[in-house]
């Protein structure tokens, strides 16, 4: 009964922990408005790693991408139209 964790999973896990350390460190560096952009960009990178490696999207085809992307597409509409008034109001 021998089993080793697959290297891609191990790599993804270490990369995620590294990104967590990076995002917490950068949160304390004064970057003005960029602080939240950096935090969200790192969060999106982490979510992409989880999707690609842990959720095995890297081994799937266009059909699964469409199903997985649909939620993000609707989320985009929700946030875009939802925030439009607040971002453009003078």
């Amino acid at each position: 009964m021998r089993w080793h964790p697959p290297l891609p999973l191990l790599g993804a896990w270490l990369a995620l922990l590294l990104l967590l350390t990076l995002t917490v460190t950068l949160a304390y560096v004064p970057l003005g408005h960029f602080n939240s952009s950096v935090a969200l960009a790192i969060a999106a990178t982490k979510a992409t790693i989880i999707g690609a490696v842990f959720m095995e999207l890297r081994r799937r085809g266009p059909r699964t991408f469409i199903f997985a992307g649909a939620g993000l597409f609707w989320l985009g509409i929700l946030l875009w139209l939802g925030m439009m008034d607040f971002m453009t109001r003078t």
């Binding site: 949160a27 939240s36 969200l40 982490k46 989880i50």
Partner: peptide
């Protein structure tokens, strides 16, 4: 994994702002 991904965004929105 999805619940994990949600937490990553909640973490960035809740804990990180205003630290600098």
């Amino acid at each position: 994994h999805f619940v994990d991904a949600v937490w990553i965004f909640l973490f960035a929105l809740i804990y990180l702002p205003g630290r600098a």
